[in-house]
């Protein structure tokens, strides 16, 4: 093993550990915050008994879930059933590998980072459908089918929205896009016409990809019990639950990097800015979650294929026109 390979592996492992643990810790705190936030939105107070102001609630939740008995349905496909939850956790974390948390804190600075993120994000369909199919449960199967239809459909607006910063910055590397924004403008601010709508498009598609309200049709607990997680207990359920939050958190980080200049910001070190932006987007997801109601299946598909897809294509060409014809757009 030559030294370059060795250092790349060590770099990836060390930063990977840091980033993974940071993401997991922040989603633990995020869950606590979400519960407090949702509580206050509904004139409640949220968790209070576990630790000071309920801060240890996520810890209590995870410990409780890990202690639960592991039940595998007799009719399930055991291998797929057991493999799906860890895969979901891995794929949801994997996208964080190329997100620059500061100018230096980046696990792997790929020159095709954006494509990698989209590819890994698309892989989330696999464990979802593995779980839905292998459970051999009708609710899980319906949930899995809906999840696939939804993720696959919203993959298209997601790709198109991601293409706007790529066109504007002329780079497929996430850190390259952030660098461009640091030297020019945040894309959500300027050029505002493809920039801000592209962010909103990305945000909507991200909500749909991570099955968040108002796009939580695959879970739809009022119709499908718990969707794909119907048959899962204990640690395996925890992994799915975790994967959902990680997906949202990493999606927020990507949105912050692509549209809000990532680690770029005055006064404070870059890491602070990146974390602040990521958390703000993350919180807004929960704000949406506790405010809106679920779409119907057909509304969801109409919105995606009839509205968002043409809109996304239009934004891409608006961005391309900006680069081509706006004075100073290409610099």
């Amino acid at each position: 093993m030559n030294p370059a390979t060795q250092s790349a592996l060590i770099h990836g492992a060390v930063y990977g550990t840091i980033v993974c643990l940071a993401v997991l810790t922040s989603i633990a705190m995020g869950i606590w915050f979400e519960r407090k936030f949702a509580g206050r939105m509904q004139s409640r107070i949220g968790p209070t008994y576990t630790g000071p102001v309920g801060l240890l609630q996520p810890v209590a939740d995870v410990v409780k879930l890990l202690q639960k008995e592991d039940i595998i349905p007799r009719d399930a496909d055991h291998a797929l059933f057991n493999l799906a939850p860890p895969l979901a956790a891995i794929f949801s974390l994997a996208a964080a590998a190329v997100v620059p948390f500061s100018a230096k804190v980046i696990s792997a600075d790929l020159d095709v980072g954006v494509v990698y993120i989209l590819g890994v994000g698309g892989l989330m369909v696999v464990p979802t459908f593995m779980a839905g199919w292998s459970s051999n449960n009708k609710f899980a199967l319906l949930g899995g089918m809906r999840a696939i239809a939804q993720s696959v459909s919203y993959g298209v607006p997601l790709v198109l929205a991601t293409m706007v910063p790529v066109v504007l910055a002329g780079s497929l590397s996430v850190s390259g896009i952030v660098d461009w924004q640091a030297t020019h403008h945040w894309f959500a601010v300027w050029p505002i016409l493809p920039g801000l709508p592209a962010f909103l498009l990305f945000y909507l598609a991200m909500l749909a990809e991570s099955n968040r309200i108002p796009f939580d049709i695959p879970e739809a607990e009022s119709e499908l019990v718990a969707g794909i997680t119907t048959e899962y207990t204990g640690a395996k359920f925890t992994l799915f639950y975790m994967a959902e939050y990680v997906h949202t958190m990493v999606g927020s980080a990507v949105a912050a990097a692509l549209f809000f200049g990532g680690w770029d910001g005055p006064f404070a070190p870059g890491l602070h800015w990146m974390v602040l932006k990521t958390l703000l987007i993350f919180v807004s997801v929960y704000w949406v979650r506790w405010s809106l109601v679920r779409f119907r299946s057909d509304q969801l598909m109409d919105l995606c294929w009839k509205r968002l897809t043409p809109l996304g294509l239009g934004l891409v060409f608006l961005a391309a026109a900006f680069v081509q014809y706006w004075p100073g757009g290409a610099r």
Binding site: M41, Q42, S43, R44, I45, P214, W287, W290, S291, L292
Partner: peptide, 21 residues
């Protein structure tokens, strides 16, 4: 309408909770 809904939930945050422990 979604933005209105979000404004409504946001305003709720500053109200006194109805919970009695």
């Amino acid at each position: 309408d979604s933005l209105k809904a979000m404004a409504t939930t946001f305003r709720q945050i500053f109200r006194k909770p109805a919970t009695y422990e």
